[in-house]
């Protein structure tokens, strides 16, 4: 066999490694192409068509987008509902997640059990969760209003209607979502473990109390995970749908009729796949723009070990 040059062997090796690399990555690459890229391109094409999911799609140019922006009241209602949800759910989710993490970052007996308990809601099916909270939030017989009854009596006010009251329904869904804050809590806790103990020791020697240590050490060094959860929260917030579908059916008075819900109805109920695809692309761009704006906050994120 002819002896290969050193360079030739290296090139061959790189090529072989590339092949092996692609072979190992191929299940994911094929999945990306078939299940993500193709549907995305298909929906982009469909957004310029009239398609009732029975007949062939027919090209109608920008009509779907024009209708959505200029002559569809529900489009704006659903977009507003979704923005409202994101604006409320994301910051509240961050605050509750951080508070839980701070609370459960202690060295007490059985801390693992507590952490598991707070994480558990994340593995509960959303349908079960919706039905459970439906009972808890029931205006007349729900546990929450029973507990709040003395407060209502004190202020001589009517019980809150929660999901049955259009002015409270969006907030009710946000409140319910906080039940799953244990998911972000795990990420915060993981990051807290990385904070060097020396920082706290030094602060303690300098006379910093626990609140100051949290404010000046823990929170700044948690900004990467806070930032991560912030971005993921925005993306997930714009996709809110299932819980409204289960709990409120988009009501009362369309107050929980989110963008995803309207998109679903356009496709399944109105048989307007083209219009639903256009909505999906609008949602993608809205989410993208807000995420890009949110990414500008990256300058305030402190990455441990990063050099100036």
């Amino acid at each position: 066999m002819a002896k290969k040059t050193k360079d030739g062997s290296l090139t061959l090796l790189i090529k072989r490694e590339k092949k092996v690399g692609f072979a190992f990555a191929s299940p994911w690459l094929i999945g990306l192409a078939v299940f993500t890229a193709f549907p995305m391109l298909a929906s982009f094409f469909l957004s310029f068509t009239r398609y009732d999911m029975v007949s062939s799609p027919r090209f109608i140019g920008l009509t779907n987008y024009r209708i959505l922006f200029f002559s569809d009241n529900l489009f704006w209602t659903s977009l507003w509902n979704t923005l409202y949800h994101v604006m409320l759910a994301v910051p509240l989710g961050l605050i509750v997640g951080i508070l839980l993490a701070l609370l459960l970052n202690s060295r007490i007996r059985g801390i693992g059990v507590y952490r598991t308990i707070f994480y558990l809601p994340n593995v509960v099916s959303i349908v079960a969760m919706g039905l459970l909270w439906l009972w808890l939030f029931q205006p007349h017989f729900g546990l929450i209003n029973q507990v709040l009854d003395p407060v209502y009596s004190l202020f001589n006010m009517d019980p809150i209607g929660w999901y049955r009251d259009a002015s409270w329904s969006k907030f009710t869904i946000v409140l319910m979502g906080l039940w799953t804050a244990g998911g972000s809590m795990i990420i915060y806790l993981a990051q807290m473990q990385d904070i060097p103990k020396e920082y706290y020791e030094a602060a303690e020697i300098d006379g910093a109390g626990s609140l100051r240590r949290i404010y000046h050490i823990t929170l700044p060094l948690m900004t990467p995970s806070i930032f991560f959860n912030f971005i993921m929260g925005i993306i997930a917030g714009f996709q809110v749908f299932a819980i409204a579908h289960i709990m409120t059916g988009g009501g009362p008075a369309r107050s929980t009729y989110y963008f995803g819900y309207y998109l679903f109805d356009k496709m399944i109920m109105d048989h307007q796949m083209g219009s639903a695809s256009a909505m999906a692309w609008v949602l993608l761009f809205v989410t993208l723009i807000i995420t890009i704006l949110a990414l500008r906050l990256n300058r305030y994120v402190f990455y441990l070990g990063e050099q100036d």
């Binding site: 059916g249 009362p252 369309r254 109805d265 109920m269 109105d270």
Partner: peptide
């Protein structure tokens, strides 16, 4: 143009009537 005319398309308004809004 409104296959769901009797359900969501109507009920959203009907519910507002029921609630007295």
């Amino acid at each position: 143009y409104a296959p769901n005319w009797h359900a969501m398309d109507w009920m959203q308004y009907f519910e507002e009537g029921l609630a007295g809004r």
